[in-house]
Design a protein around this nucleic acid. Structure first.
Lengths: 356, 356
DNA sequence: TTGTAAGCGTTATCAA
DNA sequence: TTGATAACGCTTACAA
């Protein structure tokens, strides 16, 4: 006993113990081992005991490709994310991963690096795993990618678009996120309500950051509706702090003062906003007295600045948590997942405080 | 011609086009299709043309479980990371993912949430995919996990420990990272060299953050060697900014002044350091005049603080990049990967500047 | 409660 | 240049 040299018969196998090895040691056939692994109750106690011993002594690890191929269903959820080094998506992925793991699913991850042309390629690679469900970011996809998603959807694979939830544009897929246009409008409204009549939106320099552009569009629309002047500027690519710094000078040349220049700048994210604010302070403008700045994302840095940065807190973790839950339910019941709009919060901190 | 209804014969299949469907349409057998997919040169031009057409019209996506099962090798690299919402690991994972994808590998990701007991479980799940290589964080593993890694290593699967590189402790696995003890010593040396004689290290509150503890040990050792007094405090769990704030009061009660209390505090990470510094400033201490603070990680926030936070810049992206490269080479050549020590940088910014 | 037979979709081997 | 056949390691369906 216990001498655990598994019977090696295979020519192609990779040397690990197989179910047959375990079965031989437990003096049963592999189907009984398989059954024990999935429905232990259906195996006699004595047999189970022998199988347990064999399992332990061989160090058996089931081969998933074989199992999935045989059963026809994978327990993989494939997710395609723009960028993982961005803590915002990191939180979503972390929560998604936790939720899925708890339910026995595995997360297969790919990132596009915000490159639209890589989306289709990556998606194709992910689909090769025959995932049980797909998670993609946003509702804007390249033509090829959209078709792949539609095919998967058509074949009954749940598809969830995270970080977006557009009230009108009826996507065929479930959306878990929020309306970025509404966020943009709320940002503009906040600034207008606190007395500003010359606004600017500093948009993300990343082409494929559609959600930032959408917030910008909402921002501009609200300004138009309220008949307030509004300027939009696209940030340069590269380090967002530096881009913000440079954008400040483009928006607020020292020769001008409001309403010639904006008295309030909203940014596509907190890092840009940070740059704008630091540079404003360095130039001698007071924040919020001379210039008001707000960002998006509620990055840790914003809370620590002097003055603290007003921003919008997105439901990053919630998106991951809810998506995991939705998918778990959908996969268990066989029904299509239904999207959810998740709440965000406008955090009016010191950087946009009205000065008396 | 385009009528693309694949022959559905299977009872258990999941409805996608298989290689047989493509073959039937191209009027060859599946092995020829398989060959075309892997070695197009070995297929006659006319045949290849028909296969291409069939491929496009069926929208065929190869089933990886089947391919991997048959070939015995997966192109999966499995990685186990403490936490993805932490931007430090996010950068590593992003770079790893980019490098692996470029070489045709896929990244299967799991996170332990810094829970040691989950490591073995997660590792076991990852191993089920018969990954071509394993990436784990650090060199401290639970007993079961260590055994699993050793087994994999013994079976010829490359194993890389990232974010660590211990000069003495000979790990059987390749290490790509740096010596945290050395970082701790350098931090202490920096503070002592700038005139401080009462130091403190604020350690991470996370039990499994072994690397932070190791930096602390190095820090304390250097202080001892230089005969400088040094105190170590474990941060509370929870929000690191708040933990830093509270730790400040524990370390520097208002009743004491140096050398009764430390004149320099090094922290396990920049967020803790931030908390310490903000609270010091709020309490009326000047930084760096009355108290010097430094962190670790070079988080974006540190550069933006007033004064800018001194810190250590770890090679986060480099670790991912080099690991991908190492594994790609090792898998191509069949040789074991060899570890690398990567350089970090101590960034002495304003928060530890000597005051004249 | 346990087992037999067939099959999942692909690739390796060897033959034509 | 192409194909027939047998794996790969597991699960489903159906018996015993």
């Amino acid at each position: 006993m216990t001498a655990s040299t598994p019977t090696r018969r295979s020519r192609r196998g990779h040397g690990r113990a197989t179910m047959d090895d375990v079965a031989a040691m437990a003096e049963v056939t592999k189907i009984t081992v398989s059954r024990y692994l999935r429905e232990p109750a259906k195996v006699a106690d004595a047999t189970a005991e022998r199988i347990r011993a064999a399992l332990a002594s061989t160090g058996y690890v089931p081969n998933k490709q074989a199992g999935l191929l045989a059963s026809g269903r994978s327990n993989i959820v494939a997710a395609l994310i723009p960028n993982l080094s961005h803590s915002i998506f990191g939180e979503t992925v972390q929560a998604l991963s936790e939720g899925l793991q708890a339910a026995g699913f595995e997360l297969l991850l790919a990132s596009t690096g915000y490159a639209l042309d890589r989306e289709e390629e990556q998606l194709r690679a992910l689909l090769g795993w025959a995932p049980s469900a797909l998670v993609v970011t946003g509702r804007h996809h390249s033509g090829g990618a959209q078709q792949l998603l539609l095919d998967a959807h058509g074949a009954g694979t749940p598809v969830v678009e995270v970080w977006d939830h557009h009230p009108q544009a009826a996507s065929p897929f479930a959306q878990v996120g929020f309306d970025h246009g509404a966020v943009g409008r709320a940002m503009a409204a906040h600034l207008i309500d606190t007395g500003h009549r010359a606004l600017a939106y500093l948009d993300s320099g990343v082409d494929a950051d559609f959600r930032a552009h959408e917030r910008g569009a909402g921002f501009a629309a609200e300004a138009r509706r309220r008949r307030v002047r509004c300027q939009t500027l696209r940030a340069e690519t590269g380090d967002p702090f530096d881009a913000g710094r440079r954008a400040f000078h483009a928006l607020c040349p020292s020769t001008k003062s409001p309403p010639e220049r904006p008295s309030a700048v909203a940014c596509a994210n907190d890092h840009l906003a940070c740059g704008v604010m630091m540079e404003a302070l360095a130039t001698g403008l007071a924040v919020p007295a001379d210039l008001v700045v707000m960002g998006f994302g509620d990055f840790p840095v914003g809370r620590q600045l002097q003055p603290a940065l007003s921003t919008v807190h997105p439901p990053s973790r919630e998106i991951g948590r809810v998506t995991a839950q939705l998918l778990t339910q959908a996969l268990a019941s066989g029904e299509r997942p239904r999207g959810t709009a998740l709440p965000w919060q406008l955090l009016a901190r010191a950087s946009t405080q009205r000065v008396c």
